[in-house]
Design a protein around this nucleic acid. Structure first.
Lengths: 332, 332
DNA sequence: ATGAAAGCGCTAACAC
DNA sequence: GTGTTAGCGCTTTCAT
């Protein structure tokens, strides 16, 4: 059997309560006894049992993280940030992958809810109602989603989109296509709305809506054919994965990027730099977002004053996938 | 307060012991009472408290997974497989990222050890001794690592390497460079050894060892310059990430792939297909490996007969990054 | 087949 | 400042 608090108490010649306090509330114990206890604990290799601690304190010392897809490098980065920050604060992370399925997502979140002190929902696919209902039972922090009254973190989608469009317009593009992500994605909605809003402000500019696609390489390939068939000279994809797929499809179809068509993504995942030609995109500080979401969650869990939400900027990254609009634009 | 077993017992008109049995050992309870209990539990929305269950049963219902880097898509895939399979068996997964640091890795594994029923260590960087020591305290399954006596899962590295070399030799390559991964990586050792062994068997073939690099895009870029400086006509990178970086560096240096130099990776991550030119590589069933490792771990945890270790093949994926050896080879 | 009761290891009142 | 003690919610003997 593992070393318990009783063993430590015996070794240190104090009661188990003192051991408990010495370890978790040092200020309530005389410095001298504290040292005795700590020494005994270390010598015995004592590790408090988290289940027992959780049972009596009501705190689990863990937080949950739900992401749509761990294979998507975007979420890998967020998860990394979450895990790192949580660990630094003494919390464990229970990660769950919802496989882009709103139903599974809700089920998973419920299961997690009873074994963690709070949950970070990243790019949730479920409805506002589902999320609200969950938030009545457990602290929730949202990443890439806004629901009234719930704390959330997201990048500056509108700002990023503004920079992207500014860049394309400066290159002479007037007709811009948008290859959308999942219809259930809040981020997609925000990006699409921002784009529509920006383009609507200028009568010279035209938006071509290519529709919604899976936020993946193959989703991008589907969008590629539609982009070619349109009169757009530039295509903004919902994310980089789609943009890379789009790039590949254009290449297969014999179109030259950026000479015939400029292509951009969003997020600046590593693959954006690896693609050929390198992808113009908007950098979004994913790891920071992960960290920030933990801070926000622990503010609530520990009843701390909520820290100021960090300003997570968006930075335009220009690479060779965007260039001057082809001549035909001028003719339109 | 949440619904407890007592509430269910009261509602069903039985004792808490009966509720406990009805839910976890159905065969020990009369069918009729079982139905009553199940009905009451469902109506009340009862969810057994895992901490309490863990405390009294000694089982946590969770397994741990330690990976070197969640941002690396390779590990994202493994994590996905692990999570999916564990969930299907009613287990939660505690994931931890060791940040490629052997020290942190050991520390993390120890922390996890006390709150899970078993741990899957993926691509462990630590020493055999550290792993053995951990395995004395908790069930451990290794992925991409072999330590005598411990259950493990890994892809067919030697088989994959054989196919890769066969392909290159068929294309006329005689001098082949190897850009190694981390010196602490078991997988790297296995791949490098396999390559050396294969090339040594044929006097016509020459191995150029470029050294060890971080298993990343930038690691590949470093290796690129060395590859160009060598007389090799083909370079095998430890993994795809490195191969893509190598590709980029060769492009920057004005070398043409595959005309001047053939390049291959290993693993077949999505980026291998997205790179330009598409990367010849060896596919390794990462998600399956994740699943298989869970099965292996639960065999041990539940005292089941260990199932047969699945045959995880390796499949050569040929893409445009490999081509006929340039003329100078013939001259060598 | 079911119930009563003893813990699992720890925290948190409550005494002293 | 430290010890005593009552649970936290559940599983598991041991009776019946």
């Amino acid at each position: 059997m593992a070393v318990t608090i009783r063993d430590v108490a015996k070794a240190a010649g104090v009661s188990i309560a003192t051991v408990s306090r010495a370890l978790s509330k040092p200020e309530q114990v005389a410095e001298e006894t504290r040292l005795h206890v700590v020494k005994a604990a270390r010598e015995l290799g004592y590790r408090p049992n988290t289940a027992a601690r959780g049972l009596s304190s009501g705190q689990t010392g863990s937080i949950g993280l739900v992401v749509p897809d761990l294979e998507n490098p975007y979420f890998g980065s967020v998860a990394k940030g979450v895990q790192e920050r949580a660990r630094a604060q003494g919390y464990n992370v229970l990660i769950a992958d919802s496989d882009e399925d709103a139903g599974l997502e809700a089920e998973i979140a419920r299961t997690l809810a009873q074994q963690v002190d709070g949950i970070i929902l990243c790019s949730v696919r479920g409805t506002d109602a589902t999320i609200r209902s969950l938030s009545r039972d457990i602290r929730v922090v949202l990443v890439n989603r806004n629901v009234d009254g719930l704390p959330s973190i997201s990048g500056d989608n509108a700002g990023g989109m503004r920079q992207l469009v500014g860049h394309l317009v400066a290159l002479g593009h007037r007709s811009i296509a948008y290859a959308g992500g999942p219809a259930t994605s809040w981020t997609n909605k925000v990006r699409a709305d921002a784009l529509a809003h920006i383009l609507a402000a200028n009568a010279e500019l035209e938006l071509v809506d290519l529709g919604n696609f899976p936020p993946s390489y193959s989703g991008g390939m589907q969008a590629g054919d539609l982009a070619l068939a349109s009169r757009a000279t530039a295509t903004i994809a919902f994310n980089d994965l789609m943009a890379v797929g789009l790039l590949e499809r254009l290449r297969q179809r014999g179109a030259n990027v950026p000479a015939d068509m400029s292509v951009t993504g969003f997020d600046n995942i590593p693959a954006a730099a690896m693609a050929w030609p390198g992808l113009t995109t908007v950098d979004c500080p994913r790891v920071h977002m992960g960290r920030a979401s933990v801070d926000l969650l622990l503010d609530a869990v520990l009843g701390r004053e909520a820290g100021a939400a960090p300003d997570l900027g968006a930075e335009l990254i220009i690479r060779p996938s965007t260039g001057p609009a082809p001549e035909r634009t001028a003719a339109v």
